[in-house]
Amino acid sequence: MKEKVVFIIPCYNESLTIEKVVKDCKKAIPEATVYVYDNNSSDHTDEIARNAGAVVKYEYQQGKGNVVRRMFRDIDADCYIMLDGDDTNPPEFAPEMADLVLNKGVDMVVGDRLSSTYFEENKRPFHNFGNTLVRGSINMLFKSDIKDIMTGYRAFSYNFVKTFPILSKGFEIETEMTIHSVSHNMHVANVVTDYRDRPDGSESKLNTYSDGFKVLRTIFRLFKNYRPFLFFTLIALILFIIGICMFIPVFNTFLITGLVPRIPTLIVSCFFILAALISFFAGIILDVLLSEDKHAFEFRLQQVHANKVIMEKLDNAETL
């Protein structure tokens, strides 16, 4: 049976904060079900969440991306509100986010921490720099205006959840969500939310350097996949410039002397220019395939919407 609004909370060792988070969620939207997905916690996070009134489920593959994949598969709802279990995302903003999904047709609502208290509350300067770098990179590459790329505080529509192919296993999941929604022209809105730093004794599971590198690698991969023409054209331009720079001296020598004394340089320059042409035409071909994939995605959206209507009719029939 499909629910109206649900909170979905991925958790790993959040025993210090999960009780408060669950109770705050119930206070923000009393009629919503609160789901806590425990990801191999060893500090009794699941028991505390269950005692606080949450429905506790489990994902045994480690990693936030794996947890989100499980949540999206398991639960059917009109609106999903995802937030972290570390009490950094105040649930009092959830009603506004849910309203945008339920009544304004928004597919994903981003809880924007960076426009409010994030830089004041967060005491980790490299996290602040990383958030700014990732936001600027994605907005530039994908011509978007997402205010907070890395936030775990989001609301989703049923259509988004059931058509989002999750490939990431860890914390790069937020970046993948953002690029997917922008690339497929889904309706995205920003809601400015407060941010609270973790309480004393609660440690972040995000490693600034290793997870930051994974996020940058994800941006690179998704840039190649979602904007292949621009990606391979840039590579072609670099290869072409290198090839021409190597070719010009050889050509000048030929014009003056009529000889080509540097045959190896000529051969290598021709290889660079040939590689540039191959890269350019690869970008064209992949761009055509991407366009076909977007057509197929729109068809999948229509199928998901049709299934949603059927489920609503069945729910209404059961109610009667």
Score class of each variant (00 low, 15 high):
59 E>R: 00
320 L>C: 03
49 A>Y: 03
27 K>D: 11
313 K>S: 08
300 R>V: 05
139 N>Y: 11
286 L>E: 05
243 G>N: 09
62 Q>H: 09
34 V>L: 08
270 C>T: 12
180 H>V: 07
174 E>L: 06
37 Y>E: 04
24 D>A: 13
106 V>W: 03
43 D>K: 04
254 F>K: 12
245 C>K: 13
126 F>M: 15
148 D>P: 03
288 V>P: 00
214 K>P: 02
86 D>V: 00
88 T>N: 05
267 I>M: 10
305 H>V: 04
50 R>W: 11
187 H>Q: 10
207 N>T: 08
213 F>V: 14
176 E>N: 08
259 L>M: 14
47 E>I: 12
102 L>P: 04
55 V>N: 04
247 F>Y: 12
313 K>V: 04
78 D>V: 01
49 A>K: 01
7 F>Q: 06
8 I>E: 05
96 E>Q: 14
219 I>H: 07
212 G>R: 12
206 L>D: 09
33 T>G: 00
128 N>C: 15
109 V>S: 01
221 R>T: 09
313 K>Y: 07
35 Y>Q: 03
39 N>Q: 10
186 M>I: 07
185 N>L: 12
300 R>Q: 15
305 H>Y: 10
139 N>Q: 12
76 D>C: 03
234 L>M: 13
111 G>A: 06
240 F>I: 09
228 P>A: 04
318 E>W: 06
71 M>W: 08
290 L>F: 05
44 H>Y: 15
122 N>S: 03
